[in-house]
Structure formats: structure tokens, C-alpha cells
Nucleic acid binder design. Structure first.
Lengths: 228, 228
DNA sequence: ACCTGAACACCGTTCAAGT
DNA sequence: ACCTGAACACCGTTCAAGT
């Protein structure tokens, strides 16, 4: 809202189009309708222009959504890197990424390291630089940096996919209540773990799960730094 | 190939349709054309039937692809759980999932814990049961199990997304050579890590990165088991 | 250089009709 | 119960034409 003139207004768009304006409108519409619901029809209506105009500024739909995802990722990099304990910084950075992508469930799946996506590059750069401040051997920096990058973006994307399925119709609680009921109906001899975990399922929080995995990774890093 | 009569044969399909047959045909076509290229037109041609027949056996395209993904995940659970060291078993299981999904780059993104997807449920059950054989406090089982589940499926999905983008046209090496060239062109003052990591990028292996993150998680688990 | 908008080649899904 | 296949309401993308 706000960045782009709304559908309500009449006549032609005021001011020139640009990739920036197109991407801003795409973010608004992706937030409103999700990845599936976002169409060029909605986009050209909001921008009060024709399809060809959009294609002048972006190559295609895929590139547009990737640019939109990279833009929302930028919020995670807004605070400048601090000089404290690198592991604490790594943890804060990962959470900042989660929190930047969480309000935009369509975004995480499109975050990739690509020359056109500056914020994804900046993120990998920051992770690598933080690792360089640990005693980790230099030849392991790239491997561990990409592993952490993959964890952060991959797991956030998983959470988002779930959220998108849920958000489509029913509430989160209703969905997990239904899942829990199904787990309860399973044979306890065949599924001892799931049948005993229905309360955990009902109460679970995606962000806590993200943090749990993140802390496992950072503890593992600490252990490797300590020399196994 | 083989499970389903090929397009070449004439006339009507021999034998009745079933969800099993529809899913098997979907897997073949998803492997051949990818998630984007897989259409109901291709599916009904291969099955020599009409669109309505497919909708008798599955609710819609989403459900069909999810069922197909769950089916290929099944290969990871083929070997029965062994009685050895639970952490080694966890590692072997995670790698089995990666190797089961890797030949089907469309699959990982659709693996979710859902009542209709038995193999995803079985996977979470197995992870939980292995954790139950460690000294991890019972109240942490669910959280850690889902964290590991999310890592395995989420990171594999990230790798697959990259593979799909690449596989579309150019070779893997050509793509990463282009990326590396771009990293080299970055300002070394602004991107000290990336500009120094171009060789790592060119040589990197996705599976190694998956294993690196996995071992960090398992080392972290070991550390937490040791009582921090 | 940038924009218009009609036209094109699809796509998933529905449904009245058959067996 | 299971299948047929035409019809429907879309969709992203192209491109000749404008300014």
C-alpha cells in the first residue's frame, strides 16, 4: 500500500514506470494474493498499464518474483553488521532473515544466490565474513557459509509453504487440530512417536523450530571450532 | 518408463485406472518435463484417457504432485531401521532422503507432513524414534525431530530449485562459471568473502554442502546430549 | 526509449453425458 | 463407479503499432 497508486484511482498512472515501481507493486500484490494468485492482470491493473510495459522492465514473471523476494530480504540486512561475538552475530543475522521473510510467505522459495539478486549475495557475504572471524580453517569457510545460507533460506521456505497451504482457507489452529486428530488415529504400535506427539504438534511454533535447528548448527560449529 | 503404457501405442488404455497408476505416470512425466512442464494434457495423453478420469482419482494437480513426491520419498525408507548408534542412523537416514529425492528435482518442495502423505509421516516417525534412543530429554524430541525433518527436506528443496533452474537450458558448469565470473567482478573491498571464494563456487558440490550442514546439526546434537 | 493492448498458445478444472 | 471430451475461465508472453 502507498508505494503505488491503487486500483481505485481513474485514468493513467502518474509518473514513469521503472523496475523499482514494478517490483514494489509486485510485492504488494504477492502479499495480498500469494504466489499463485499474483497475475499480470492484477499487476497491470494496479500499475494502470499494459503487459508489454512490464516486460520492458523485467524479463518475465519468474525474474519479477525473484526480484521481489530479494527486495524483502533486504530488510534483514538493514542493520549494519556489529563487531561482537561472531556466533551471536550469525544467530542474530539468521533470525533477522527469518523475520524479514516471514511476513511474505511467497518470498523464501525464490531467494537464491544469483548475480541479479544483490541481497542474497550480501547475505552470503555477511555469513562468510562472520565465519572468517572464527577459528574455522579458511578452506572450510565456503562450505559452512553455504550450509548456513541453505539452512536459513531452505527451512524458512518450508515454513512458508506450510503457511501458504494453511492461509489459503482455514486457520492455522484448525489445520493442526485436524492433523493431530489424524495422528491420534494412527496405530500406536506402528507410530509410537507420532501418536505421543499430538500435543506438541498442536502447540508447536514454526519460529521455535527454526531456532532449534539454528542452535543445533551453531552448537555444532562451536564443537568443531573447539577441535572436535 | 515401463509402469505405464507409452504414448506410442494406439487405442485405449489396457486395464483400469487407479490412483497408483495415475501417480506413477505423473512421476514419469515430472522426471521428463519438470514441475512446470508437467501438464494434464501430457498426463491424459500418456494414460490415453480424459481429464475427468484423472480427477476421479486425485483432487487436483497439487495433490497429484504431492502424492508423486511422497512416493519417490518412499525409496529412502525402503531399508528397515537398523539397531546401531542412533546418531549414525540419523545421518544415514538423512542421506537416504537426499539421495531418494535428488534424481527427482521437482519432488522435495512438495514433501510435507500431511495426513495423506504416508512416507513423510513415516520419515518424521523414524527421526523421532531415533531421537528417543538418545539421552535427549523427552520434551525436546518433537522440536528436534521437526528441526531435522525441516533441514533435510528444506535444504534438499533448495538444491533442487537450483538444479531445476540450471537444468532448464545450460550445463551446471557453465552456470557456475558465469556466477564465478560475476563474483570476480565485484569490489573486493565490499565483498572480500565472495571475491575470494570463486574457486570454491566453481568446484562446490551440493551434496557435500548438505552433508556439511547435516554434520553440524548432528555435532550440535551430540554437544547438547553431552550436557552443553 | 518506453508504452499500448489485442492476439496467441496455452493451462487446470468442470460437467453433462455416457457405460 | 468410473470414464469421456468438449467447454470454460483463465494464464504468461509476444509483437505490431504508437509516442
Amino acid at each position: 500500500m502507498g508505494v503505488v497508486p491503487q486500483t481505485g484511482s481513474r485514468g493513467r498512472r502518474a509518473g514513469a514506470l521503472s523496475q523499482e515501481v514494478v517490483v514494489a507493486a509486485a510485492i504488494e500484490l504477492l502479499d495480498e494474493h500469494g504466489d499463485r494468485g499474483f497475475t499480470f492482470k492484477l499487476l497491470t491493473e494496479r500499475l494502470r498499464t499494459g503487459a508489454g510495459a512490464v516486460y520492458w522492465h523485467v524479463a518475465n514473471r519468474d525474474e519479477l518474483v525473484a526480484l521481489a523476494a530479494d527486495r524483502v530480504l533486504g530488510a534483514a540486512l538493514a542493520t549494519p553488521p556489529a563487531a561482537g561475538d561472531p556466533e551471536a552475530e550469525l544467530r542474530a543475522l539468521a533470525l533477522a532473515v527469518y523475520d524479514a521473510l516471514d511476513p511474505h510467505p511467497w518470498a523464501a522459495a525464490h531467494v537464491t544466490v544469483d548475480p541479479d539478486l544483490v541481497n542474497a549475495l550480501r547475505l552470503l557475504e555477511r555469513i562468510g565474513r562472520l565465519l572468517a572471524r572464527t577459528p574455522l580453517p579458511a578452506e572450510r569457510h565456503f562450505m559452512v557459509a553455504t550450509a548456513i545460507f541453505n539452512y536459513v533460506t531452505g527451512v524458512t521456505a518450508q515454513d512458508s509453504a506450510r503457511a501458504a497451504t494453511v492461509g489459503a482457507s482455514q486457520t492455522r489452529d484448525a489445520v493442526f487440530a485436524r492433523y493431530a486428530a489424524h495422528w491420534e488415529s494412527l496405530d500406536p504400535a506402528a507410530f509410537p512417536f507420532l501418536t505421543g506427539a499430538t500435543d506438541d504438534l498442536r502447540r508447536h511454533d514454526d519460529r521455535d523450530q527454526f531456532v532449534t535447528g539454528l542452535d543445533l548448527i551453531l552448537d555444532g560449529l562451536r564443537r568443531q571450532l573447539a577441535g572436535d
